[in-house]
Design a binder for these strands. Structure first.
Length: 458
DNA sequence: TGGAGCTTGAG
DNA sequence: TCAAGCTCC
């Protein structure tokens, strides 16, 4: 026995939390720590989600979640010493800053005679296990998934929530959570329709399995169809584990839909695998040929993209969905990213930074791997010449302009057939359109410019 | 997990 | 006239 501290980070749940279950062998002090360096690096939307998620976690811990503040390297060992804690547990992190912090802290704690257990609770497979037969890491998704993952042992089965003997905390410290909220109240509307926390994650998973899972493979591409799982923020904050999702899906009859959804979970694994192997994934081209790419500096264009004022309806709808809800449909993420990188020739890092700040599911691995994938500078990346035409994409995946009109209501003044490309409408129809900008760039010309830029690379 | 431009052939 | 198929970017 003894007093065991579980340090919660991106594992804000009780069920299927191997490190928490390990802590439950003793009397448990559940802790969340506000490290100033981590807070400074966190996006605004993520902080709002975290605020709600920590409240939910505290409730499921009978109000006994302890909130600490300070640099983890000093604040945590001090707390451990003051409270005569014998064992510290946490769920492993795989981002470079997290790995570095955890290694240093583990050494400090062990040097002080404290037992430390770090366990995997956020990935289906450890990123260092997936290696090609020649020992080098995979760079292509399909063999990574087929030979590196599926051929390995199946993912660990989920654990039940442990019974916790909680050590009562001496005073209420919940006011510390308020630092996560912004000064202005935009976050209230943003959270409409979201339900952060372990219970909300479970409900979202069940609703997905009972609903959109059937037909997922094709409907997932239609932004107005509500046919995706929307589990990403829950998964990012560890309110649900990938193992819980994987095994819940595996219980269903196997179809093309279940197989495809599992492969999407595996893309998340692949992103973490890449981030683990390439710690500078969020700022350095994986393919260094792209270091010579002639990016444009264009703050005005960047700002119009950020605010959903490019004059390209599907792009603006996506960027406004993001701004209003902290989320964007995956198909539309690819379209807006392609537009920023290829039609505007603005560096993918600018897009990554904006997504990091505004997405409630902003994730270091998914965000970096996906932006590099669109740019063509990453692993298994889209070929450079794959340039989405946002009008073609919109006509294909939002044929009735339902999604477009939801987020760009100005376009409701036009007949449906003109809402994908309003500039092509006859002048007398177009004049009904008040206050919606002309296209920021000509799609044909900017496509040609992008192809020329890419072909200029050595 | 593209698109543009071209040819071909049905209607 | 246009969808389908092909090639190249």
């Amino acid at each position: 026995m003894g007093k065991h501290l579980h340090w919660f980070r991106k594992d804000l749940r009780l069920a299927d939390n191997p490190a928490l279950s390990r802590a439950a062998k003793g009397d448990v002090l559940p802790v969340y720590l506000f490290d100033p360096s981590e807070l400074a690096a966190m996006g605004a939307a993520s902080k709002v989600w975290l605020f709600h998620s920590l409240h939910a976690l505290n409730q499921s811990l009978d109000g006994q979640l302890r909130l600490l503040s300070g640099p983890s390297q000093t604040a945590l060992p001090e707390f451990v010493a003051q409270n005569e804690i014998t064992t510290v547990t946490w769920t492993r992190r795989y981002d470079p800053a997290g790995i570095e912090m955890d290694q240093a802290l583990k050494a400090t704690l062990q040097g002080n005679g404290v037992e430390v257990h770090s366990l995997n609770g956020s990935l289906l497979w450890e990123p260092w296990d997936a290696k090609k037969p020649d020992g080098t890491p995979y760079r292509v998704f399909t063999p990574f998934y087929k030979r590196g993952c599926q051929a390995a042992a199946p993912p660990r089965a989920p654990l039940p929530a442990p019974k916790l003997d909680l050590v009562k905390k001496p005073h209420d410290d919940l006011a510390l959570l308020d630092q996560l909220l912004p000064d202005r109240d935009w976050h209230v509307d943003m959270m409409d329709g979201w339900n952060p926390g372990e219970a909300g994650a479970r409900i979202a998973l069940e609703a997905f399995i009972d609903g959109p899972l059937d037909g997922y493979k094709s409907d997932r591409d239609v932004p107005a169809a509500n046919a995706t799982s929307r589990l990403s923020p829950h998964l990012h904050f560890g309110e649900i584990s990938p193992n819980q999702i994987w095994h819940a899906i595996a219980k269903q009859p196997t179809t093309h839909d279940t197989a495809h959804f599992k492969s999407e979970l595996a893309w998340r694994e692949f992103s973490y695998h890449l981030l683990y192997r390439h710690p500078d994934l969020d700022h350095k081209n994986l393919n260094d040929k792209f270091d010579a790419f002639p990016w444009r500096d264009d703050d005005a264009a960047l700002q119009r993209w950020q605010r959903g004022q490019t004059g390209i309806p599907i792009v603006d709808a996506g960027m406004r969905e993001l701004w209003q809800t902290g989320y964007m449909h995956n198909r539309v993420r690819m379209i807006v990213a392609s537009f920023l990188i290829k039609n505007l020739l603005i560096h993918w890092r600018e897009g990554l930074a904006w997504f990091h700040d505004t997405l409630v599911d902003a994730d270091p691995a998914n965000n970096a791997a996906s932006w590099q994938w669109v740019a063509g500078s990453g692993a298994d990346a889209a070929p450079y010449f794959r340039i989405f035409n946002p009008v073609t994409q919109a006509r294909k995946f939002d044929a009735e302009a339902t999604y477009i009109t939801t987020y760009v209501p100005e376009l409701a003044a036009l007949p449906v057939k003109h809402r994908h490309a309003p500039w092509e409408a006859p002048a007398e129809i177009r004049k009904a359109l008040q206050g919606y900008p002309e296209p920021l760039v000509d799609l044909k010309d900017s496509r040609a410019r992008a192809l020329a830029a890419f072909s200029s690379l050595p």
